[in-house]
Design a protein around this nucleic acid. Structure first.
Length: 819
RNA sequence: GCGCCGAUGGCGGAAUUGGUAGACGCGCCAGGUUGAGGGCCUGGUCCACACUUAGUGGGUGGAGGUUCGAGUCCUCUUCGGCGCACCA
């Protein structure tokens, strides 16, 4: 074959990319959409570091297929792109290399832009944004101030991860097994003034509204677990001689009569005071001090043995007046509930372990199926109070709480695992918090007209135990906007999750200088119809974005409650069965494959490799196979174009097709139907691409037997169907055959008449085993089918045995049950 | 420990509602084209037995069960992956 007959993506792909760029094909306006038929598809904002990896390729291959499909289904599609540029990796890179994070981010973003263009992704580039640009973070700060005004942003002392060597606060994700990710030093807890968002106020709504979104069930479950709503009661234990009441939270008030001791967290502010003057004072002090130096990871280890010391005091159990000893132990967490618990060793595994170790009494108060303790199941009460003994525990629970409530000793209560969002970072490369500290006025918000508070240029941004911004004295020292007196800027910056909690809103109205968005424009696009990203963001990013949307809706800045209607979480691309990593030396990047085979091959392959929500292993041989397929389609296109002469509408044969023509027409309509269903109903891109392969194979097999018009239609259909996955090749072949631009064509409709056959293959079974196949009229009645199924071969299998039952499944099979 | 997901040829995977297991691709085998190789085109390829044709038996991690019929539903179990992990 001559050279011009070789599929050459290096000429095909730039050609179409240039057209799309020149004509701004994928840009959409914010004008009112007729019929409201708009569609918003977004991939999760990429963090620009180095150059894009295989995960990005997969992300955009999926998103672009959806975007193209929806466009051709007649929707106006918003498909934007941006960069999550602030953040720790860029800053750490800067510390190591000496390159300013602004510069390294810029070169990374340039690399991403270059790659995305070479992939031919149909982004609306006019809405491109990056979270580190003042024109963007101006509004991040504006939203922060709105949250502050509403009391949803507040300052409070909190324990943070502190690396004593690097003299810096670390984000949770920088703490690996209790050690600093950079220097390996054990991280300690340190109490610092921090900024928080009051996300816990939204716990119930974040939980309840999960029912309104179409998300993968495991992501919904992870969010539920993260919020961790527990229903129970708060019960007050009294310590009359010290004159203090201690409420505890319990989900099992039915076991109150089994409480034999009381435990406080080492961080509980009263612990040292309680032990003071008792024989245990020294021991308690030692225990508490030791607990405070221990890493969170060590303390959280369930496998380690329980420790604790007595406080030398006691409290009174409100249900029976019993005096029970107080202890301090690190298995009780200060952050959850009230930082103190009632211990019921008979019915709680942790309390049981503790009681066994320290010889504390264990009392059974719920009847179980056997004598084993601890017993955490249900059953009637015993050893409690005559009023409750014998009552099933679930019922008794309600009665006990009612009784406590009447007595003023307790009430129903709900606790959440979810904590408020700690958003401040003592770091340089982030969005400045727009607050001024004035000795006279306290915390003063930066006035709106002074936004953005721009991140100053700082030469030394290495962390030193306070934010690097503190060193920029000209920047830090300001006049108080309220009193005009000397004041200081807040020097902490925001967690990058803040930046990425609202970018999907900004895309809608990316160039608005008056406001973060026009609510009318937002209403046109939001919520996002299809959001696509990695499952690693299943909790934090998605939870934070949902919180932002709810809070903004409460301020009437939005009129919807959930940002992402449908969520798709893609699986990882592995290499040799393992996650790609530099240390394993198995990293492959998209660049080389795009260079060698073209973007269409790389994109198609990554979708063809398997179901996109599952992990998939990259194989070079597999890439070759997909490349071969696109080459086959391309060559077929060239040949057919030559055969038909002038490009024109691919109408298929004028008269009712027969024989090979009919079969190929049927295959084409079958493929249309298959690809449409695979795209619309589920994200089964792998089987959709397989269907187009089948169509192309059928074209080759029948090419010499069919009329040119039939082959023209079938080939053009294949090009049209492959377009969402291989846009350049699809556009090229389609144009060669029809002279038209495939993206301007509406998605093809399968002709129902072509999907049905007048005869079907009828399967003949005996006792469920396949014995014969016969052709049968599709419209045949059950009786006719049964008669047709009585073939000579069937008779040899029945062979005089008694037919006790005949199961007829019209259009499918006849099963003879014999004995 | 608790929760979830998964296990199908030599390999990646298909089988959307219980109804012909193995689509499509890789790999392999054969034929054609070619000076040769590559490329391309066509056919074959779950396993075993049998083999001109035809066929017979087995088969979806394992063991049971429900059903006329199970990769699919139920119970138990093994292995792998993920999430949470002292949350009272």
């Amino acid at each position: 074959m001559s050279t011009e007959r070789r599929y050459d993506p290096k000429t095909v792909e730039p050609k179409w990319q240039a057209i799309w760029e020149r004509e701004r094909t994928w840009e959409v306006s914010n004008d009112a959409v007729a019929g409201g038929d708009s569609y918003y598809v977004a991939e999760m904002l990429p963090y620009p570091s180095g150059e894009p990896h295989m995960g990005h390729l997969k992300n955009y291959a999926v998103g672009d297929a959806v975007a193209h499909f929806q466009r051709r289904m007649g929707r106006r599609v918003l498909h934007p792109i941006g960069y999550d540029a602030f953040g720790l990796p860029a800053e750490n890179h800067a510390i190591k290399s000496g390159e300013h994070p602004r510069d390294s981010s810029a070169s990374s973003i340039a690399a991403f832009q270059r790659e995305f263009r070479s992939w031919g992704v149909s982004f609306d580039w006019s809405r491109e944004l990056a979270t580190h640009e003042p024109s963007y973070y101006r509004w991040t700060q504006w939203i922060f101030l709105k949250l502050y005004e509403r009391g949803l942003a507040y300052r409070s002392r909190a324990a943070v991860n502190w690396c004593p060597k690097d003299q810096t606060v670390l984000a949770n994700e920088q703490v690996i097994d209790g050690r600093c990710e950079r220097c390996g030093t054990l991280v300690v807890a340190r109490q610092l003034e921090q900024w928080f968002f009051r996300i816990t106020d939204y716990a119930d709504r974040l939980l309840d509204d999960l029912e309104t979104v179409e998300w993968p069930s495991h992501v919904v479950r992870m969010q539920r677990n993260w919020i961790g709503r527990s229903e129970g009661a708060e019960v007050t234990f009294t310590a009359p001689e010290i004159g203090v009441d201690y409420p505890v939270f319990t989900t099992r008030p039915d076991t109150l009569f089994g409480a034999t001791f009381f435990v406080m967290a080492p961080e509980h502010p009263d612990v040292l005071r309680l032990a003071e003057g008792t024989e245990h004072e020294e021991e308690v002090r030692g225990y508490v001090n030791h607990a405070l130096t221990e890493s969170h990871e060590d303390r959280g280890d369930v496998d380690r043995e329980k420790t604790g010391v007595p406080l030398g005091r006691s409290v009174i159990n409100p249900v029976n007046g019993e005096r029970i000893p107080m202890w301090v132990a690190d298995y009780v967490l200060m952050e959850y509930g009230t930082g103190a618990i009632m211990a019921v060793p008979g019915h709680d595994a942790r309390d049981y372990e503790f009681a066994t170790k320290f010889g504390l009494p264990i009392r059974r108060v719920i009847q179980g199926p056997d004598d084993e303790l601890p017993y955490t199941g249900d059953g009637p009460l015993l050893n409690s109070d005559p009023r409750f003994d014998g009552t099933p525990n679930r019922e008794a629970l309600e009665q006990i709480v009612d009784w406590l409530d009447d007595q003023g000793r307790g009430h129903r209560s709900i606790n959440y695992r979810l904590r408020d969002w700690l958003l401040s970072r003592q770091r340089y490369w982030g969005c400045p918090i727009p607050i001024i500290h004035c000795d006279r006025c306290g915390l003063v918000p930066v006035p709106e007209d002074q936004l953005p508070v721009e991140l100053p240029d700082v030469r030394d941004y290495a962390p030193k135990g306070r934010s690097p911004l503190a060193a920029a004295e000209d920047w830090v020292n300001v006049e108080c906007p309220r009193c005009g007196g000397p004041a200081l800027r807040e020097t902490d910056t925001m967690d990058t999750f803040v930046d990425s909690s609202w970018y999907f809103l900004r895309y809608c109205d990316a160039h608005n200088d008056e406001a973060p968005w026009d609510p009318a424009v937002l209403a046109r696009w939001m919520p996002v119809d299809q959001y696509i990203g990695g499952v690693e963001h299943a909790i934090l990013h998605l939870m934070y974005a949902r919180f932002f949307v709810k809070a903004l809706a409460d301020m009437d800045l939005l009129d919807f409650q959930e940002p992402f209607l449908r969520l798709f979480t893609q699986g990882m691309i592995t290499r040799d069965g393992a996650k790609m990593s530099k240390s394993k030396g198995n990293v492959i990047s998209p660049v080389g494959y795009v260079e060698r085979y073209g973007a269409d091959t790389a994109r198609c392959y990554i979708l063809f490799i398997g179901p996109p929500d599952q992990d998939a292993d990259w194989s070079d041989e597999g890439v070759e196979g997909v490349h071969r397929f696109l080459g086959r389609l391309w060559r077929l296109g060239v040949d057919v174009a030559e055969q038909i002469g002038e490009p024109g509408p691919a109408l298929g044969p004028l008269e009712a097709p027969q024989g090979d023509d009919l079969e190929l027409m049927r295959k084409a309509h079958w493929a249309i139907d298959k690809v449409t269903n695979d795209m619309a109903g589920r994200f089964a891109f792998n089987t959709a691409i397989a269907a187009v392969m089948e169509l192309v194979n059928e074209c080759y097999r029948r090419r010499t037997a069919v009329q040119p018009a039939t082959l023209h239609f079938a080939t053009a259909t294949a090009a049209s169907l492959i377009f969402p996955f291989a846009p350049h090749c699809g556009a090229e072949v389609y144009e060669a055959l029809t002279g038209e631009r495939v993206w301007e064509e509406s998605w093809p409709d399968a002709d129902p008449a072509m999907l049905e056959r007048d005869t079907v293959e009828l399967v003949v079974q005996v006792n469920g085993k396949l014995r014969d196949r016969v052709q049968a009229p599709a419209a045949a009645s059950r009786e006719e089918l049964e008669a047709l199924a009585r073939t000579p071969r069937l008779e040899t299998h029945v062979d005089g045995k008694e037919v006790v039952k005949v199961v007829v499944v019209p259009g499918k099979l006849v099963n003879f049950v014999v004995r």
